[in-house]
Design a protein around this nucleic acid. Structure first.
Lengths: 348, 348
DNA sequence: ATACAAATCGAAAACGTTTTCGTAAAATCG
DNA sequence: CGATTTTACGAAAACGTTTTCGATTTGTAT
């Protein structure tokens, strides 16, 4: 019934708790014979060390926390998968918290994780995050922190990102290359750096190729759980405001899919009338009609890399080595699909 | 730097650790004055109780574990979200593990959670799970266990399920109702009860409505991460083997979407030539073309309900009350979309 | 004044480990 | 055989909290 303890094993074998503990951990000052004995009885009794006691003593929880804006999201669930897979290899358990894009929740959850004494924290910031005191609080407690995707540049910690600006530039340039004359942009919320960068990439691509930047061609979507509907609405507005737009670069796939749906409904031909490029490469994008061109964002790899960075830092702190912060930039890729292959579709 | 402890607060205030502890927890035998004093200094020092010490003492981790086959999956990520939301309300943290549909991994992960002394475990079984000794091991340690969706009927614990058989019956009956004469079924793997039940519901609906059951119309898909491709392949086979099938009930949406894609490619009209009904109601199903009829499976609610059941059991054990196992059946709903609205589409 | 109750506090044990340090026994060596 | 090293073990402290129970002080009633 009650879990087996070192004490019980010690009593059964008539030796001390110390020796039992040492035997299980292969200390050199325990004879082979007692080691064997201890290990055998431990196995038959199904002994499992009490994690609390171990943690209390060693100040290591072998647990990390992760805070993300939203679990039900293809990109983030891929990241989670990458993190869990990597963490498990190193014997770490993962506690997952969800900020729901709320700054207040994010703060609370950090407190929760800190009081749980997790060995490290992995975070992707909420859109509503306006300052970074709570992140600095983490750093002050000497808890390793790695930010990924939605990061804060000013916070002193390791980061894993993609180059949103470059990717957006590539996507927009692609629209230019296939002959789009007037390119709109459905951007994300105003705050997070990602949507700012994607917007900047879009703008840069335009100006680099002698396209005038027209603010009225930029529509804002909050990219909440209503992304799909936002895409539809923005598409409606766009069609009303500008009947000569022939290309759109959209901040995220789900919004793009909403837009596509609206275009389909209104009989707008994609890509012939309007070419569309999304962002993130949700699985969905490869199965809708027309299939959606997009920027592939390596979620699984990002999770994997983030944990690796965190793990390295945990080890460094343990050995009292100086910790080095790194910013890893993962490559993205333009995935060209039907929604932006004008020439071919036109030829048919 | 180092986290603040009760001892430090005690020393600052010149009182005992005991009193500090009691003051913070509002024990009646501490004067209001010292309570105020203690709480103030605790707040300014940003004191956070050491979870390990508390856990070690109280034998409560305020943490639960959840094991699911796959994180990157609309249904399961919805469940996770439901669980996390509910758990957070009650002050519980959630550790997530992923079995990748492997029996061996599942066993290992249970061990991990048990040695972490989680207060309870929530599980959805892997397809590869062939026996349930590992589940009984959980029960033997007196750790509350709740199974959801992919359950084992014989295990003595609370469960949260849907009636797969009934839902499948409804889906198949719907195909019959819209006039399908020859209805095929793409079923899931052979082992898990869910795909068996869905198959049985399909079969039952046929025989109840004087349709002969024809085993050659049943195709097996493993529903792994290759679901989409499996759907395409099965669709190809079906078209080759039976050119007169006019309806399919498919074990899960992703496979159905694969099939739809293949049908689109081969110029088969859905629903006119073949009507299709899926299962699970992935978000994707509402945006593809044609939109996919399906059975809505309430993931978020399932997560919520599962945690509630687990929480109740945790409380019961704590109070040494007798634990009562409950099986909650959540309602499902047939969502009719374009892929199975023959009449209307035909009329147009 | 005495007796007694109420209010307030603290000592100490316990939770189950890990690890340092000391010691006894056995083995080695001259 | 005595001296020294090696081998094997255990006592005890520590991690930070909770809680029992006893002690002390203060207040109240006789």
């Amino acid at each position: 019934m009650k879990p087996v303890t070192l004490k019980e094993i010690a009593e059964i074998l008539g030796i001390s708790i110390t020796t039992v503990s040492k035997a299980l951990k292969d200390y050199p000052d325990v004879s082979k014979k007692t080691k064997r004995l201890v290990k055998e009885t431990a196995a038959t009794l199904n002994y499992k060390p009490n994690a609390f006691a171990v943690n209390l003593r060693t100040r290591e929880s072998k647990t990390i926390g992760i805070i993300i804006p939203e679990v039900v999201h293809h990109f983030f669930s891929s990241v989670i998968k990458g993190i869990i897979a990597q963490a498990e290899k190193k014997g770490y358990l993962v506690i997952i918290l969800q900020s729901n894009e709320s700054f207040e929740l994010e703060k609370k959850q950090i407190d929760l994780l800190l009081s749980k004494r997790v060995d490290g924290i992995l975070m992707s910031l909420a859109n509503g995050t306006v300052n970074f005191n709570h992140l600095n609080e983490i750093i002050e407690t000497d808890t390793p922190l790695v930010l990924f995707d939605k990061i804060a540049k000013v916070v002193k910690c390791s980061k894993v990102i993609i180059d949103d600006r470059k990717a957006a530039y590539t996507a927009t340039k692609h629209l230019i290359d296939i002959g789009c004359k007037k390119i709109a942009h459905f951007r994300g919320p105003l705050l997070p750096q990602n949507s700012i960068d994607r917007f900047l990439g879009y703008k840069q691509a335009l100006t680099d190729h002698n396209r005038p930047y027209d603010p009225s061609l930029v529509y804002i979507c909050n990219c909440s759980d209503k992304s799909f509907d936002e895409g539809k609405e923005s598409a409606q507005k766009l069609l009303k405001d500008h009947n000569d737009v022939d290309g759109i670069f959209i901040n995220t796939d789900l919004v793009a899919i909403g837009a596509l749906t609206e275009f389909n409904k209104q009989g707008i031909k994609v890509p012939d009338d309007i070419a569309v490029v999304g962002f993130s490469n949700w699985f969905m994008s490869s199965v809708i009609s027309p299939t959606l061109s997009t920027i592939d964002q390596p979620g699984y790899d990002m999770g994997k890399t983030s944990f690796k960075l965190l793990y390295k830092e945990i080890k460094q702190r343990k050995k009292k080595e100086p910790v080095t912060f790194k910013t890893v930039e993962l490559p993205t890729e333009l995935v060209v699909r039907e929604s932006s292959t004008k020439s071919i579709t036109v030829e048919n």
